[in-house]
Design a protein around this nucleic acid. Structure first.
Length: 887
DNA sequence: GTAGGGTTAG
């Protein structure tokens, strides 16, 4: 049968675990000292080498002698690891070419969590110190008043221990100004250098924790100049302070300067340096050099060293490296704590390995480490980011059941889930619950609401929430403004977008890559590619480097406006569009007149803006222009794409020049751009770019496109394995893009092969049952290939003599990928397809996105003699220039 | 000296 896969080896994939745990086991999970052990027969008893991923490939060949030992000690991976070769710390390599990056995040620098209280430790302060602290907290008077307060306690406080206690505690309450006053007073009255030194390091560390790195630096430099700052403690404290604020280069400088002060870095110093490097977004390999260095200098890493290294993996999404580190801790007999587990879990969640994350979470009670609010919010967020919202909410239920109180972060995590899903009732319930728990809404809370409402096009609510935010004196930040500018400009509300941008500038904030990328994307989506290019140029001039997201938007803009307008022309020109079975391949109606209006190259369009010198920012000018044009914006004529093609090639060129690594979204964007090409020759130029980026992805696309299905299927499987490890929407977008491209160029059997593989791997949720085909997550090519496959499947049911369900439905939704609310592109495509093959489906009365028929009518149709012929797909025969073979 | 949340691409 035409719809069956070719005879080639299809490697088995891991069994997919749909539901992470049955309900009855959930109930047994108690937050008690002696939790019941989980029995999960569906879970692997130990980790198989194949589940270890690429991080271990090429090492430790042969059998692992530590297998049983590993099982006994609960090791996460079994490959023997040997330090100090640092092999377990290496970043795992993809099976695909090194450029293929499954990671999507472009955020490397961690968020700063300032103001975390210093965990309690044995203090040697006196009761008088507590009294003084109490007075200091209550105090709200002027400078003279605090001086008097200090004087009144001067004779009673016992040296630096008391003062250290007070300034740390003041720091825990955010009262850094009072802390500095206490510090200055204490240092002045203290004669002994070493006591002054203790005070200085305590002060620097307190300021560092509060994010007051500038003041910390002053304290440090003064202490150095006055001769009591040259202690390992003070240096470690300032390194840590720099690290917390993301100044890892300064942290390293200070560390390197220690030698010249005659100081030997100790364990705390190294831990601070490693942590600073990680927080500053340094690559694991570089951070590991400090790890090597400390051991060379005879300092043995401890639990915190490893926890900080784990955090580096988590920021990079290197979950395999994190597992290796975790195992290495066990090998070395280093105790593991809640930080270890939470950081490991974060790495695994960020690596998208949610089933493994759940597994580890479930093992924690048996290790006597009870999951806390951080553990749960980490995994809940992981599920949400993987698109597994039900699992996220189930876990939230478990957390509540266990009586773990929610905090600000976990409330915001949940709120953002509901807001993203557009479930505003639930979101507002969370807001209410927050209020009754005494947690005030912060910028994160408001930003989640603004983004949620904005993405649903509910601009009135956006305005109300933003007004409330200001009323409540919650300061809008860069993320707030980025969100607002993004939703307004994507919605075409240029006036509002411009006002927000003006306000953003007036409060002294500086645009960043995200803000620019959002704007560029909006312009591209609205067909304003020229303006997008000019902004790309503008941001570069401002010293803001575009990233892969920026470029993906630009690539995705290719052919978009032309296609849309030409389609509009086709529809206006009488052809009902329904008969237009495939709008793409031979769109001969497209006018081929060249035009100069598209810029030839990035960076050449700024000459105009230089001539028209105004005080307004380029962004404001663009918005102003768009507002002035209003709805009367003149539609561009359909153009031949050679101009656009050279523009996009220039974009690729720039990407290479800036060494911006593509990721799977880039590949999807290129494939989508191919689907918008009017000729195979044009597409082949884009595919050549794909080849330069990633030869294996190219190999699969090329092989399927040329009809060499059998030859590339093994390679395709390995590619699909990698894609499947990503979150659901990333994976489905790739399948959609690949299928569309194949369908567009007439490789319909290849397209069907890919969608069937996608179905097998559950890339799209619940695609089909015997009674219903749900296409709402699919692109037009994927949907069409799927309709054929589903109908063939229904036909085999009839053939086997079984009865069909009474009612059969095909759901198209609104066509998720149209990105236009209410734009039923997918519905129209499917309707045309069904009509074209004479399938007896009609639009359901109550739902225009749903096609229905009765089982008996469909059965009769399937039994007709000509039906099979229209159901079986054939490849279109086109004269195709051959593409270069993959390397 | 160590952990979790909010913004951009399909």
């Amino acid at each position: 049968m035409a719809s069956t896969p070719p005879h080639c080896s299809i490697t088995a994939t891991k069994p997919y675990q749909n539901n992470p745990y049955p309900q009855n086991q959930l109930k047994n999970h108690r937050h008690s000292p002696n939790p019941p052990k989980y029995h999960r027969p569906w879970a692997p008893q130990r980790f198989s080498p194949s589940s270890l991923g690429g991080g271990n490939r090429g090492r430790g060949s042969g059998a692992s002698p530590s297998t049983s030992a590993a099982a006994a000690t609960g090791q996460l991976s079994q490959t023997p690891t040997r330090f100090p070769a640092l092999s377990p710390l290496q970043t795992p390599k993809s099976d695909l070419s090194p450029d293929f990056s499954g990671r999507r995040s472009t955020r490397f620098v961690s968020k700063m969590h300032f103001g975390r209280p210093k965990t309690a430790m044995a203090t040697r302060h006196s009761l008088i110190a507590e009294d003084a602290l109490h007075h200091a907290i209550q105090f709200s008077g002027d400078e003279e008043g605090i001086h008097n307060l200090l004087l009144s306690f001067e004779s009673k406080l016992c040296g630096s221990d008391d003062y250290t206690y007070i300034l740390r505690e003041l720091g825990n309450r955010g009262e850094f100004e009072k802390a500095v006053r206490f510090y200055e007073f204490a240092v002045k009255r203290e004669r002994r250098k070493n006591e002054q030194g203790k005070l200085a390091s305590a002060m620097i560390s307190t300021l560092g924790r509060l994010g007051k790195v500038g003041i910390a630096k002053r304290v440090f430099e003064t202490a150095l100049a006055d001769g009591y700052g040259n202690t390992v403690y003070a240096f470690s404290a300032i390194i840590s302070a720099y690290g917390r604020s993301g100044y890892h280069e300064d942290a390293i400088k200070v560390y390197k300067s220690m030698k010249s002060y005659g100081l030997r870095p100790n364990l705390v110093t190294y831990n601070a340096v490693i942590d600073a490097c990680g927080k500053g977004g340094m690559e694991f390999k570089q951070v590991a050099e400090f790890f090597d260095e400390m051991q060379r200098n005879g300092v043995q890493p401890d639990r915190i060293t490893f926890n900080s290294l784990l955090a580096v993996c988590s920021r990079g999404g290197s979950w395999e490296a994190a597992r290796n580190l975790f195992d290495e801790m066990l090998n070395r007999g280093i105790e593991q704590d809640i930080f270890t587990y939470n950081t490991l879990l974060d790495a695994i969640c960020k690596g998208g390995q949610m089933d493994l994350a759940f597994e580890i979470l479930a093992q924690m009670p048996a290790k006597n480490i009870m999951p806390n609010v951080v553990t749960y919010s980490t995994v809940i967020d992981g599920y949400a980011k993987a698109g597994r919202f039900n699992d996220a909410l189930t876990l939230f239920g478990e957390m509540k059941y266990l009586g773990i109180p929610l905090d600000r972060v976990s409330y915001n995590t949940l709120l953002s889930i509901f807001a993203k899903l557009g479930k505003f009732e639930e979101a507002l319930d969370i807001v209410k619950e927050m209020a009754s728990a005494g947690i005030r809404k912060d910028a994160v809370t408001y930003n989640a609401l603004l983004g949620g409402y904005g993405k649903q096009g509910r601009y009135d609510e956006v305005k109300t929430v933003f007004a409330e935010m200001k009323q409540e004196h919650v300061l809008p930040n860069l993320l707030t403004y980025s969100t607002l500018i993004d939703v307004y400009s994507k919605g075409g509300l240029y006036k509002e977008a411009m006002e927000i941008f003006r306000e953003f500038k007036s409060v002294g904030l500086r645009a960043d890559v995200v803000l620019y990328s959002a704007l560029i994307d909006a312009l591209c989506k609205n067909g304003l590619v020229e303006s997008a290019v000019s902004l790309l140029d503008e941001m570069t001039k401002e010293g803001i480097s575009p990233n892969v997201v920026t470029y993906n938007s630009m690539i995705d803009a290719f052919g978009r406006s032309a296609t849309m307008e030409c389609l509009a022309d086709i529809n206006e020109g009488g052809a009902s569009g329904l008969e237009e079975e495939d709008e793409s391949f031979s769109s001969s109606s497209i006018s081929l007149s060249p035009s100069n209006s598209l810029p030839l190259a990035v960076g050449k369009v700024d000459s105009l803006s230089k001539l028209t010198k105004t005080e307004d920012h380029q962004i404001v000018k663009i918005f102003g222009q768009l507002v002035a044009e209003g709805n009367n914006r003149t539609k561009k004529d359909c153009k031949q794409d050679m101009q656009e093609l050279s523009c996009i090639l220039e974009v690729f060129h720039k990407m290479h020049e800036l060494e911006i690594k593509p990721n799977v979204v880039t590949f999807s964007a290129i494939l989508n751009a191919c689907s918008r090409c009017n000729s195979f020759e044009e597409a082949s130029m884009l595919l050549e770019e794909l080849r330069l980026f990633d030869n294996k992805v190219y190999g699969v696309a090329h092989g399927l496109l040329m009809g060499y299905r059998e030859n590339v299927w093994v390679q395709a499987q390995s590619l699909f394995d990698e894609v499947k490890a990503m979150d659901g929407s990333t994976a489905s977008a790739f399948y959609n893009a690949l299928t569309d491209m194949l369908w567009h160029f007439g490789q319909k059997r290849g397209a069907q092969l890919v969608v069937l593989e996608g179905r097998r791997r559950k890339v799209w949720e619940n695609v089909w049952s015997d009674s219903c085909l749900d296409l709402h997550l699919m692109s037009s090519g994927a949907a069409r290939a799927m309709v054929h496959a589903w109908l063939l499947n229904i036909r085999s049911i009839v053939d086997e003599g079984h009865e069909l369900p009474k009612l059969l439905s095909i759901l198209t939704g609104w066509g998720k990928h149209s990105k236009v609310m209410g734009d039923g592109t997918l519905r129209r495509v499917v309707e045309a397809l069904l009509r074209g093959m004479g399938a007896p489906f009609h639009v359901a009365k109550c739902n225009v996105g749903r096609f229905i028929s009765t089982g008996s009518v469909v059965e009769a149709w399937l039994r007709e003699s000509g039906t099979l012929k229209v159901l079986v797909l054939h490849d279109d025969k086109h004269e195709q220039a051959s593409l270069p073979l993959p390397l």
